[in-house]
Simulated assay, not measured.
Amino acid sequence: MTADFTTWDITLPIALAALAIGYLLGSIPFGLVLTRAAGLGDVRKIGSGNIGATNVLRTGNKKLAAATLLLDALKGTAAVWITHHFFGEEAGILAGFAAFIGHLFPVWIGFRGGKGVATYMGILLGMAPEMVLVFAVVWLALAFTTRYSSLSALVATLVIPVALWILGAEKIAAAMALMTLITWWKHKANIVRLMAGTESKIGAKG
């Protein structure tokens, strides 16, 4: 899967500005901020040590986990929409990718962030809103049949760039494909557990 990036019409200053805006928005560690604000301490010291919604849920606060999921997604959407509005589509694509990297490697907390699925979806919402439904359908179908949340998300991230490519959105497809590769890399421990049959299923206790 390749894209002709020679057709991109964006100046270096605008590209750098888009990357900076996206990264700074994406690097906001909402899971950590919300749990601390709620008096639940440092979410990095429980469970997987991750700052994402799944680990926030391990605090026992479902509303806080839902808020983390929503905000982690919307910071990606905001990065795309803001830069697209002021600088154009290509700037939005760059900002979206930078927001994804910011979530995974936030400068504020030692570059140790989340795994990126919520932010991936938020970026997708900003770039190609109709594809969010495709992602949701794939995720729900697999989650219902396999009960593996991680597997459902990983397969959904594979489907998205292919669907975008087929629809002719080559630049967005290329960006999402790169984010998919990084998402799989961040989920390597989950993949090992899936292959070993030890990955936790949805609804499983412990």
Score class of each variant (00 low, 15 high):
Ser150Glu: 04
Gly113Pro: 05
Val132Asp: 02
Gly116Tyr: 12
Gly122His: 03
Leu167Cys: 07
Val33Ile: 15
Thr77Ile: 09
Trp81Asn: 03
Met127Glu: 13
Ala143Ser: 15
Glu89Gly: 00
Leu71Met: 12
Ala53Asn: 09
Ser150Gln: 09
Ile123Ala: 12
Ala99Asp: 11
Asp72Glu: 10
Thr54Tyr: 08
Arg147Ile: 14
Ala38Met: 13
Ala169His: 15
Leu140Arg: 00
Ile166Ser: 03
Val159Gln: 00
Asp72Pro: 09
Phe87Gln: 03
Pro29Thr: 04
Val134Gln: 01
Val33Met: 13
Leu74Pro: 01
Gly114Lys: 01
Gly88Ala: 14
Arg36Trp: 12
Val80Asp: 06
Ile82Arg: 06
Ala79Cys: 07
Lys63Gln: 13
His85Trp: 15
Leu154Asn: 02
Leu142Glu: 01
Ile51His: 01
Asp42Ala: 09
Val162His: 08
Gly96Met: 00
Ala153His: 12
Trp165Asp: 14
Ser150Thr: 04
Ile166Gln: 13
Gly60Pro: 13
Gly41Tyr: 11
Leu74Thr: 09
Phe100Asn: 04
Gly168Met: 07
Lys75Asp: 02
Ile93Cys: 00
Val138Glu: 13
Leu32Cys: 01
Gly92Phe: 02
Ile101Thr: 09
Gly47Met: 05
Arg44Thr: 10
Gly60Ser: 14
Val132Ile: 15
Trp139Lys: 14
Lys171Ile: 13
Phe100Gly: 00
Thr145Cys: 14
Leu151Ile: 01
Phe135Tyr: 15
Phe100Ser: 11
Phe100Lys: 03
Gly102His: 00
Arg44Cys: 02
Leu142Met: 15
Gly52Val: 02
Ala173Glu: 08
Val43Met: 04
Pro106Gln: 07
Asn55Pro: 02
Leu154Thr: 05
Lys45Pro: 01
Ala98Met: 06
Leu70Gly: 09
Ala73Phe: 05
Leu32Phe: 06
Glu90Val: 10
Val107Arg: 08
Lys62Gly: 13
Glu130Ile: 12
Leu69Thr: 04
Thr59Val: 13
Lys171Ser: 15
Ala163Gln: 05
Thr146Glu: 11
Met121Ala: 13
Thr59Asp: 12
Tyr120Val: 11
Gly31Leu: 06
Val117Met: 05
Ala37Leu: 15
Leu40Arg: 15
Gly113Phe: 07
Leu125Pro: 04
Glu89Leu: 14
Val80Ala: 10
Gly60Cys: 11
Thr77Trp: 11
Leu40Tyr: 01
Asp42Asn: 12
Glu89Asn: 11
Val80Trp: 04
Ser152Ile: 10
Asn61Thr: 09
Ile172Asp: 04
Thr59Tyr: 13
Leu74Ala: 03
Arg44Asn: 08
